[in-house]
Simulated scan of single mutants.
Amino acid sequence: MELPVQLQSSNGSRPAGCGLALAQEYWPLCDTWGIVVQAAAGAGFVSCVVLMLVLLLRLACESRRRSSAVAALLVFLLATAGIFALPYSFIIALSPQTCPVRVFAFGVLFSVAFGALLARGLALLGVALARGWREVGVTAALALVQVIVATEWLLVVLVQDKRMCQFSQSEFAMLQIYVMVLLVAALMTALRFLRHACVTYSYSYTGRTHRQNKLRAALLVLTLLLSACVWLVWITLLTYGNRAMGRSPLWDEPLICVALTANGWVLLLGHGFTQVRFMCKRSARTKDPPLDFTGWTSPRTQPAAPPALKTGTDNVGFQEDVDGRRGKDVASPGIFMREISAEKDYSIPRPTTTNINEPYDEYYGHRV
């Protein structure tokens, strides 16, 4: 990436949709790949905004305990919306205005997104460091590292050396090393949570929660695996593939635009939409009307009726034999029975010995 870069259409001529007054650095906006990327990125950006509005309305109604999860998801969607907006700085040709956005915002936005997924995985594993509102703090702390790295690189390399955005594709990829570390760490955490959710099984009434945890773990692993594949492809093509095919630098910016849009949709579909749906379903279950136990229990104001006496026989088999011998005209008296109180002890005492260690020592000690 060297300034100035006059990125034109694929055949080097003015696209058909561009006017004569439009500057050459804006020609990719009228090209076919530029229009497709803009449509996909715009749809993703609008979807993120709609989900954030839904979460903001939900945040006002949720309790303090659940509002932390809503806030963490809101931070993730904000970073995803920024990822969808970032391709526009790569569609337009590199300039002193777009250069800081490319260098700084690319790594910072992905560090926030992957840091949020890492914090979510830690929270699902039950790590105390990422519980509650500390999940948002962990995400901010992880993203702050990339902010410092990008700021130092922008100041030292681009300002002090007076190079003005003259950096190679390998240097741009190396700037994202910390982001790749976050991606790998989040993937390992998600795999551990998936293993924990699949191995552990509960026979209690929390079976629905257990199935939901397995689904969350699977979606988190799938999201991070697809993101890792996208990063592996665009870094390989950017640093080696395009140059080997003789398409560098013509395909470099379109490649990054496509990678940004694809990864944004992976994050939005794999984690954004699904988490919002889980939260809405959980809120719907908690708002169900209470169970009506009318007719199941008696009012407390009514006094409890005394237990009725029941009659029974001591030995049914013996009584039938006796009745058969002496005739049916003789009625045997019944035995009145009463319910046993649970507060009293009806256990039968057992005989014990004073010599609990060796009770037969005295017996074997005597000679016959």
Rank of each mutant, 00 (worst) to 15 (best):
L232Q: 09
E171T: 11
E25Y: 00
I348K: 10
T353D: 04
M245S: 10
Q166P: 00
A39S: 05
Q212K: 11
G207E: 05
H196V: 05
V322F: 10
L268Y: 03
L269E: 10
L53D: 12
E171D: 12
S111P: 10
V266L: 01
P306S: 14
V127A: 13
I348Q: 14
P359Y: 07
P307F: 02
F90T: 09
V49H: 00
E343K: 15
V70H: 05
V5W: 01
R66M: 12
R277Q: 11
D31L: 07
T261L: 05
D323T: 15
K214Y: 00
L86K: 07
A185T: 01
A23E: 04
V5E: 04
G12A: 04
G82W: 03
A123C: 04
V322I: 15
R64M: 10
R163N: 12
P254V: 08
G12F: 03
R195E: 09
L124R: 15
T313F: 13
Y203E: 12
M337A: 12
R134H: 13
M337V: 15
P87Y: 05
W265S: 06
P15Y: 04
N213H: 13
L55T: 08
V36C: 06
H271L: 00
V159D: 05
T139K: 03
A244C: 00
V50G: 00
R350Y: 07
P349H: 02
P359W: 02
V276S: 07
